[in-house]
Design a protein around this nucleic acid. Sequence first.
DNA 1: GGCTGATGGTTACCGTTCGTAAGTTGCCCC
DNA 2: GGGGCAACTTACGAACGGTAACCATCAGCC
Lengths: 126, 126
Amino acid sequence: MSQYEHTCMIRGDGGRTIRTILDRICDKWTLLVVATLDQQRLRFTDLHRQIPGISQRMLTLTLRNLERDGLVSRTAYAEVPPRVEYALTATGRSLIPPALALAGWAIDHIADIEASRAAYENRTAP
Amino acid sequence: MSQYEHTCMIRGDGGRTIRTILDRICDKWTLLVVATLDQQRLRFTDLHRQIPGISQRMLTLTLRNLERDGLVSRTAYAEVPPRVEYALTATGRSLIPPALALAGWAIDHIADIEASRAAYENRTAP
DNA sequence: GGCTGATGGTTACCGTTCGTAAGTTGCCCC
DNA sequence: GGGGCAACTTACGAACGGTAACCATCAGCC
């Protein structure tokens, strides 16, 4: 029996719960935001600058989801101009190792994947 | 300096390449399909049965992307009724440990996340 | 007193993607 | 010859993501 059944099927819902969580965590931006907040608390604008390609809207939505799920804390200071700082919670920090494992895997296999993809395109698009 | 910069920012593209790969790997279904193929080769219908909630269309698309990226192999037997078997390649198998790490994290923190989410709803929707 | 700039967003719009449901092909069994 | 199985494929409406413009507030400056 695969370890998958131990970890993913452990609940009676046939993996539905874990799918919901993975769906929330594994979107395009969440892992990048969490990884960027590793070891430092950052303001909205700094996050926006440090994550290339993210829009303000997506950053707002991603941070709200993370805040709602208890992975980052949001601290607003009543100053002018306004200042809002985001930081990982304990739960959020615990996500760093598996997130880095996945990112490391991606780094290790970027070349393979891109080569395979190029070969596939050549095969199917004459 | 965080390890993130060592792993994610190592290339000059500001993390754009790794974002592309993560975007491809970290969608709703890919990790579940890969985890389900751990230790066993399966036919289309078996995969469909073992992954609750996936539609035929999404399974087809997910498998095509995985095949294109070289993570699964597709073997069609010219029989009647047709038989197509899917199995992980070496690259696909190497994704299992980080994928299980992430799934394990999700299992460990489902309770925290759901509690935080419930508390958030109560706070914002009186 | 009006203008500019910084900050942390929100809104409007639109194209792409996703989910549901139905159709297709080829052959076998009853 | 009607129904069923396997592996897809297509059609279509709903939901999501991206782009770009807009907003509110106040400090500092002319």
